[in-house]
Design a protein around this nucleic acid. Structure first.
Length: 437
RNA sequence: UCCUCAGUAGCUCAAUGGUAGAGCAUCCGGCUGUUAACCGGAGGGUUGUAGGUUCGAGUCCUACCUGAGGAGCCA
């Protein structure tokens, strides 16, 4: 279609005044007798087209009037700044080539009006084309890219960990099981952490970034059965160093999204002032103090219990940035978490709790690096020692203080976007009642 | 696993136990600056499934199915 430059909508401003070619889809169409306004989208954004009957002639105008939603098209026209158009630019259409016309008898199911969540999730493969879903996906991209850049630029080496893992270290109820040749069963990984402890002893500071799986029967807005985690692990570090890294990381990720995704955050109607205040240092409080504060604010919580969702909400109230709660009761934490040497009833772990009630963003801490202590914990938790022989080796051959954390990408994206439910932060969410499309 | 709520047109929802309806979407017509455009008209129904009560059930009862929200659970 001519030799005019093929452009993307996000770069439209660079081509104002020029004749260009745009390839994309028809998002919506408003029309009157002699003028039509198709909205095009091309994956990078949305732009209004203008088709004037007097300029294009009857044939092209008639074709434009009958464009159906989501038909794929190639459009030639002049790009120009226009205050009346959303986004500030529009394309004066001269020619339209319809690549595939959506049939009127079987129209695109997701109309510009309201739909229920069940309907939309059944059509997730099409729902992704909607404005809000597009914006969320692009924020997610920035969160992922920023996470990688942060660790890459701070001396971490990417060392991804296996998804198929042996034996159940935590009991099989929350693990997805799959047959594995002649070796019995394998399980989908819930976390790369144990393996990252091994790679950290080989490579220094490392991180892994991949999907994790939990067969929990959770039905809440914060849970998926398949979600992505980024998990750094460092040798020669103690709890304070881990907390320093966590706050620097979160600050960086939020700043990058603010830098790259203003348009998307606007589409999402996100109050960005709530993100601009996410700066170091984050408030740090002990679990002891957190429990006292919760009790003072009316929570039923007793020392020794884990926080419920409402507790996390109460804790984050009154703070304009994430808070870090550390030194949880050893009892409720994982077997590998290092007890505080000065107070063994609490462990050197930290949770980073997001503002605005979004709950736990990061969980991490310092690991037990002493062989005898780790064996004792494995026995106390009733875990099979032989399953952890390789993990125990790490404490036999040059053990050092070490630790790290994991951040759930979906919870982070939900918080930054200000949306209700994590299911919209991943292209194809997996939940207890849904495994398609 | 438990609690609560929902299931009616393609979608979102109405409908005192008494003729199943509206908006949007689709089609036809009108409109030269629309912003989820607007105005007029048309077509479109096994009321989730199976029983039951009743002269009569979308509505009441029972069971089941599906989904949502929450709790529990979530190194």
């Amino acid at each position: 279609m001519t030799d005019a430059p093929r452009i993307t909508i996000e770069k439209a401003a660079d081509f104002a005044g020029q004749t260009v070619v745009l390839q994309g889809w028809v998002h919506n169409l408003r029309k009157s007798g002699k003028i039509a306004f198709p909205i095009f989208r091309d994956g990078t954004g949305f732009i209004q087209g203008v088709v004037v009957k007097a300029n294009v002639g009857d044939e092209i105008f008639e074709a434009a009037k009958h464009l159906t939603q989501e038909s794929s098209v190639r459009v030639r026209g002049q790009l120009r700044a226009e205050d009346r158009a959303e986004g500030g630019y529009e394309i004066e259409v001269e020619a339209i080539e319809i690549l595939q016309a959506v049939s009127a008898e079987d129209p695109f199911p997701i109309t510009p009006k309201e739909h229920g969540i069940d309907f939309l999730l059944d059509r997730r493969h099409l729902w992704l084309r909607s404005r809000l879903q597009h914006a969320i996906a692009r924020v997610r991209h920035s969160v992922v890219k920023a996470s990688r850049d942060f660790f890459d630029n701070n001396g971490f080496t990417l060392a991804d960990t296996p998804i198929l893992t042996p034996a159940a270290c935590e009991g099989t109820t929350t693990l997805f099981e799959t047959p594995y040749f002649d070796l019995g069963s394998a399980y989908l990984s819930q976390s790369g952490q144990l393996y990252s402890e091994a790679t950290a002893m080989a490579l220094g500071k490392v991180y892994c970034f991949g999907p994790t799986f939990r067969a929990e029967k959770s039905k809440t807005r914060r849970h998926l059965t398949e979600f992505w985690m980024v998990e750094p692990e460092m040798p020669f570090v103690e709890l304070d160093g881990i907390m320093d890294l966590a706050e620097e990381f979160v600050e960086y990720v939020v700043a990058r999204v603010l830098e790259e995704r203003q348009q998307e955050l606007k589409t999402l109607e996100r109050d960005t002032s709530k993100l601009e205040s996410v700066k170091r240092s984050f408030p740090r409080m002990t679990y002891d103090d957190a429990v006292k504060m919760l009790q003072a604010k009316g929570s039923e919580i007793q020392w020794g219990a884990d926080f419920g969702n409402t507790d996390e909400g109460i804790l984050s109230e009154g703070y304009d940035r994430p808070i870090m709660v550390h030194r949880f009761p050893t009892e409720i934490k994982a077997f590998y978490m290092r007890p505080d040497p000065t107070r063994p009833e609490v462990a050197l772990g930290v949770d980073v709790i997001a503002p605005e009630g979004y709950g736990e963003l990061i969980g991490g801490g310092q690991r037990i690096h002493e062989y005898d202590d780790l064996v004792k914990k494995i026995d106390e938790h009733g875990l099979p020692r032989e399953a952890f022989d390789w993990f125990l080796d790490l404490r036999k051959y040059g053990s050092v203080p070490h630790g790290g954390f994991g951040m759930g990408i979906e919870r982070c994206v939900a918080w930054i976007c200000g949306i209700e439910h994590v299911r919209e932060t991943i292209a194809f969410p997996r939940m207890i009642h849904r495994v398609r499309p």
